[in-house]
């Protein structure tokens, strides 16, 4: 079970990375097409208007997918930011309960967020909402990527709450910055 879940978070991170790469690809192809047009205009005096219709819109959708698919992975790797100044000075016993509180609050919010996003997808589907502009994309499709990302995040948060409750070290505590960790908050958790 443990390894299945960890796989899930990691795969979801890879999917997010794929969407980031997709933004890059779409934009680069669009720029290349524009450049070819410019060159053709100079060479043969005619441009064809080569382009990816609605590429800005697609980039926006890919961005949302990248952000939300990455949520759980980013959480597990300790890359989400928080203020740990108070937490790090607490005695160990109390500190565990504060970590439980943090994870539980986040899990509840994330669960609520998931339900509300799912309800948005339902509305978009029911009313056949489509994007405006050059390409009519049914909105429920890109919105679903956000729901899936949130489901995985909620799972990760519930998972983490239980782990910490059972006395394990939080997995987000291993994060390190570019400057080495000597006197800082994350390190004393690591060395516990």
């Amino acid at each position: 079970m443990r390894s299945y879940l960890d796989h899930l978070y990691r795969i979801s991170g890879y999917i997010a990375a794929f969407f980031l790469f997709a933004i890059f690809s779409v934009v680069i192809i669009q720029v290349a097409l524009g450049l070819i047009d410019e060159i053709l205009l100079v060479l043969i005096g005619k441009a064809f208007g080569l382009q990816i219709s609605g590429y800005a819109r697609f980039s926006g959708y890919f961005l949302a997918a990248a952000t939300f698919f990455a949520l759980a992975h980013t959480f597990k790797e300790g890359s989400h930011i928080r203020v740990s100044l108070v937490v790090q000075h607490l005695p160990e016993g109390l500190r565990r309960w504060v970590e439980v509180w943090c994870c539980a609050v986040a899990a509840v919010l994330s669960g609520y967020f998931t339900l509300q996003m799912a309800s948005l997808v339902h509305d978009s589907y029911r009313f056949n909402d489509v994007s405006s502009g050059l390409i009519a994309v049914p909105l429920w499709i890109p919105q679903t990527s956000m729901v899936i990302g949130l489901v995985i995040l909620t799972l990760a948060l519930v998972d983490e709450t239980l782990r910490v409750l059972l006395g394990q070290r939080p997995s987000y505590a291993d994060a390190e910055g570019l400057l080495d960790q000597t006197s800082d908050e994350t390190s004393d958790l690591t060395h516990r």
């Binding site: 524009g34 047009d37 205009l41 441009a47 064809f48 208007g49 382009q51 219709s53 609605g54 590429y55 800005a56 405006s132 502009g133 050059l134």
Partner: peptide, 22 residues
Amino acid sequence: RSYNNTTERLAQLAGAVPTQVE
């Protein structure tokens, strides 16, 4: 400049290069 299918089609029919600008 094109921002929807009307402006894109208009540009095409006029022989211009429709260019998406947000």
